[in-house]
Amino acid sequence: MMRTRFAGAGQRSVAGLLTAVSGFALLSACGLPDHRVDDAKHGATASAGPSFVPKAPVPSGKALGPDAHVAHPGNVNGTDASVVAKAWAELAYSYDTKYDTSPHDAVLRASRWFTERKAADERQYQPASGPGVEWNTWAKHHAWTTVTVSSELEDDAPRDSKTVAYRSLVVRGTAHGRDGWTGTGPRLNAYVKLVRSVAGAPWRVDDVMVVVAATPPSADTSPASAGSSSDSSAQ
C-alpha cells in the first residue's frame, strides 16, 4: 500500500488535501507513519521515493506488562466524531518502546476505533524496515510517549453529513525515558475521515492522512546532561 507524507502540507485545508490526494488513494494507505522515513527533516518529496532499503518485516511487539505506559482513553462518546478522532490519535501515538517493536504496535492497539475495512488493512500491513533513528533514540532510553491532541479548525472543511465526517488534528508528543531522559515525541498533523452506517451509530475512523512535522533532535534532559549544561553556562 502507498505510504506518503507531504512536507509543508500543514498550511493546506482539509478539503484541499482530500481533493488533492483522492485520485491516489492516499487516504486509504495501510500503516500509519512509523518514523522510518523522515522526509520533512531531509527535504525529500513524495516523488523522490523511499530513502530506505526494504528489509525483513519488523516483528510485532510484546504483550504489555503491568509497568507499560500507554494511553487509556476511558469512556468515549462514540456518537461525537471529534471525540472519537481524538481518542484514536491519543492511543495510536502512545508508544512504549519497552514493549513495542515499532509504532505500528500502537496503531493496532487503536484499531478499536477503525472501521472493519481499515482494521483489516492494518492487521495485514507489515512494516518493511526498521522504525528509524527517532524510534531508536526512544528505545535506547526504554521510553514511552505521551501526546496532546487538539483540533485544527478549517474554514473550508467539508461539512459533516449524517454518515461522513472529517477532522483535522494536531498531535504533539513527549518521550519519557525510564532512565530519567526526556525528549521530543511524535509531532504531526492527522487528517481523519470518519464514517458510520446510520445517524446515531458510533463513528469509526475509515481513512487517515498524516503530515509529519519537522522537529529538532530530541533534547537530552537527563540529570547528567542537565549538570553538563550548568557547567557550560558558568564558563
Results as ranks from 00 to 15, higher is better:
residue 3 R to D: 08
residue 5 R to C: 01
residue 6 F to E: 06
residue 6 F to D: 01
residue 11 Q to L: 11
residue 12 R to G: 06
residue 12 R to L: 14
residue 13 S to D: 03
residue 14 V to T: 15
residue 14 V to W: 05
residue 15 A to I: 11
residue 18 L to S: 13
residue 22 S to I: 12
residue 22 S to L: 09
residue 24 F to R: 02
residue 24 F to A: 07
residue 25 A to H: 13
residue 26 L to Y: 12
residue 27 L to N: 06
residue 29 A to C: 13
residue 33 P to M: 10
residue 35 H to K: 07
residue 38 D to F: 03
residue 40 A to K: 00
residue 41 K to N: 13
residue 44 A to G: 00
residue 44 A to H: 10
residue 45 T to D: 06
residue 46 A to T: 03
residue 47 S to A: 14
residue 48 A to V: 02
residue 48 A to E: 08
residue 49 G to R: 05
residue 49 G to T: 08
residue 53 V to C: 04
residue 54 P to E: 04
residue 54 P to G: 09
residue 55 K to S: 15
residue 56 A to S: 14
residue 61 G to W: 01
residue 62 K to I: 00
residue 70 V to W: 03
residue 76 V to A: 03
residue 77 N to H: 05
residue 78 G to Q: 07
residue 78 G to P: 09
residue 79 T to R: 14
residue 81 A to P: 13
residue 83 V to E: 12
residue 83 V to M: 07
residue 84 V to K: 01
residue 85 A to L: 02
residue 85 A to S: 05
residue 85 A to K: 00
residue 90 E to R: 10
residue 92 A to F: 07
residue 99 Y to F: 15
residue 100 D to Q: 02
residue 104 H to R: 06
residue 105 D to G: 00
residue 105 D to P: 06
residue 106 A to Q: 03
residue 107 V to I: 11
residue 107 V to G: 05
residue 109 R to V: 08
residue 110 A to M: 06
residue 113 W to M: 13
residue 113 W to R: 02
residue 114 F to R: 03
residue 114 F to S: 05
residue 115 T to P: 07
residue 122 E to C: 03
residue 122 E to P: 08
residue 123 R to F: 10
residue 126 Q to K: 15
residue 126 Q to M: 10
residue 129 S to H: 14
residue 129 S to M: 11
residue 132 G to F: 09
residue 133 V to E: 15
residue 134 E to S: 08
residue 136 N to K: 14
residue 136 N to G: 14
residue 137 T to K: 09
residue 137 T to D: 12
residue 138 W to G: 01
residue 138 W to F: 11
residue 142 H to F: 01
residue 143 A to G: 00
residue 148 T to V: 10
residue 148 T to G: 09
residue 151 S to L: 15
residue 163 T to K: 02
residue 164 V to C: 12
residue 165 A to K: 06
residue 171 V to Y: 05
residue 175 A to I: 08
residue 176 H to Q: 02
residue 176 H to T: 05
residue 176 H to R: 02
residue 177 G to M: 07
residue 181 W to V: 09
residue 182 T to G: 06
residue 183 G to V: 07
residue 185 G to H: 03
residue 187 R to Q: 03
residue 191 Y to K: 00
residue 195 V to K: 00
residue 199 A to D: 14
residue 200 G to W: 11
residue 203 W to C: 09
residue 207 D to H: 09
residue 208 V to Q: 07
residue 208 V to A: 09
residue 208 V to E: 06
residue 211 V to E: 02
residue 216 P to Q: 11
residue 217 P to I: 04
residue 220 D to G: 01
residue 221 T to V: 07
residue 224 A to S: 08
residue 228 S to K: 04
residue 229 S to R: 14
residue 229 S to Y: 13
residue 229 S to N: 12
residue 230 S to M: 14
